[in-house]
Design a protein around this nucleic acid. Structure first.
Lengths: 196, 196
DNA sequence: GTGCTGACAGATATGGAAATCTGTCAGCAC
DNA sequence: GTGCTGACAGATTTCCATATCTGTCAGCAC
C-alpha cells in the first residue's frame, strides 16, 4: 500500500478502508484511488469494474469471518457435538460481527446482497462442511439421514434465523440465545431420530 | 364507503386501495381522503395518526392471510400430520401471496417492518397454535417435547426461511419446495425423537 | 351537538440543474 | 515495454428551492 508498485492486495485493503469510512452507498472508486494516492484509472488495471472489486472484498470478508468453521468440520469426535459446535461457532461469529460493529456489518450485508453469486458459493462451501460431518455421523451410526446432502441443506435452512444477516437485528435480543439453543436441540434430535 | 357517514371500515378499505395503487412509500393520508371524497381531517377522526392507520391495515391483512391456520390447529388427527399440514398451509399462503402479486406483497412487507409490534403479536398467536398442537402430540405420546412452548418457538424459528417475508425472493426458486420438505422432515423427526 | 371542512405550521418529499462518478483510452514517464 | 495519468462521454448522485404532506383546530352545516 506504500512501497513499490500498486498491487491488487493494496487495492483491496484501501477498498475495505473506504467502505468502513464511507459505507457501501458512498464509497466510490475515486475514493479508493484517493486513499492510495493514485488516479482512479490505476484501480481499473487491477479490477475490471467497481462490481468486481466489491465482489473480491466480499469474498475475502466471508472467508475470514468463517475461517474457524472448516477446522471444526475436519476435527474428530462425535458428529452431534461437532454439528452443535459448528452451529454455535457460526452464530457466534455472525453475532459478534453484528454487535461489535453494526455499521460495518450492515455494509457487508449490503455487499452480500449485491454480490449474491459470491454469497451462494460461500454458502455452498459451508453446507459442504455440514454434509461432511453428517456423513461421518451416519457412518458412525449416530445419525439416520439417508441423504446427507439434503440433510445438510435442511440444517442450514433451519438455522437461517441465526446466520442470515437479514435477521441480524434480532440477535441482540435476550431470547435469541435461548431460541438458538432450542433450534439446535430440535435439529440435532431430528438428525439422530430413527437411528438403528 | 359510499352511503351514510364515514366509518373506520370505509377508511381501512380506502387505505388498502391507495396502498395497492401507490405503494407504501407514496400512499398518503391525503390520497386516502381523496379516494373517500372527504377532507383528510375526516380520516383523523377515525385513526389518531397515519402510523395507527397503517397498523390497522397490517393487522387486518395478517389475520386474513392466515385465517386457515387456526382451523388446522383445532382439528383432530395425529399431531405430526397437523404440524406438517399447518406448516404447508403457512408456506403456501405466503408463497402464493408473494408470487401472485409481488408488488402488493412487498407493500405489506414494508408495512410489517414498520409495524413490528403488530407483527410480533400476530407471530405470538401463530406460535400459540403450534404449541397447542405440540401439547396434544405430547399427550398422545407422539412427541417428546418437555417444553411445548419452547418447542413451538423452535419450530417457528426453524421454518423462518419459509414464512418470513425477508426470504420471499427465494420462494420462486425451484429448490425451495424440496428444501421446505427437507426442513419439515427434520423438524418433525426432531419433535418425535426420544418419545417413549 | 355531531360530523365534517379547510387553513395553518412544521416536517418531508420532489424535481431538475449542477456536480460527481464509472469506465475507457491515448499518451507520458521511466 | 510497463505502469500510470488525466481528460472525456454518458450515467448517476447531490443539492436546494418548491411543492406536498401530517396533524391540529376553530368554525361551518345540519
Amino acid at each position: 500500500m506504500v512501497e513499490g508498485s500498486l498491487t491488487s492486495e493494496d487495492v483491496l485493503e484501501a477498498t475495505e478502508l473506504v467502505l468502513r469510512r464511507y459505507g457501501p452507498a458512498k464509497a466510490t472508486v475515486v475514493d479508493v484511488a484517493r486513499a492510495l494516492k493514485v488516479s482512479h484509472g490505476s484501480v481499473y488495471r487491477h479490477f475490471p469494474s467497481k462490481a468486481a472489486l466489491r465482489e473480491a472484498v466480499t469474498r475475502r470478508w466471508l472467508d475470514r469471518a468463517h475461517a474457524r468453521l472448516a477446522g471444526i468440520a475436519e476435527a474428530d469426535g462425535p458428529a452431534a457435538d461437532r454439528i452443535r459446535e459448528w452451529l454455535v461457532a457460526l452464530f457466534e461469529a455472525k453475532r459478534r460481527k453484528a454487535l461489535d460493529d453494526p455499521e460495518l456489518f450492515a455494509t457487508y450485508s449490503v455487499l452480500g446482497r449485491e454480490s449474491s453469486t459470491v454469497v451462494d458459493e460461500h454458502v455452498h462451501g459451508l453446507v459442504d462442511q455440514l454434509r461432511t460431518i453428517i456423513e461421518q455421523g451416519v457412518a458412525a451410526g449416530e445419525f439416520a439421514a439417508d441423504d446427507p446432502e439434503r440433510a445438510a441443506g435442511a440444517v442450514f435452512a433451519a438455522t437461517a434465523r441465526f446466520h442470515d444477516p437479514v435477521h441480524a437485528s434480532s440477535w441482540a435480543h435476550d431470547g435469541a440465545q435461548r431460541e438458538f439453543e432450542a433450534v439446535c436441540e430440535l435439529v440435532l434430535a431430528g438428525l439422530g431420530a430413527g437411528r438403528r
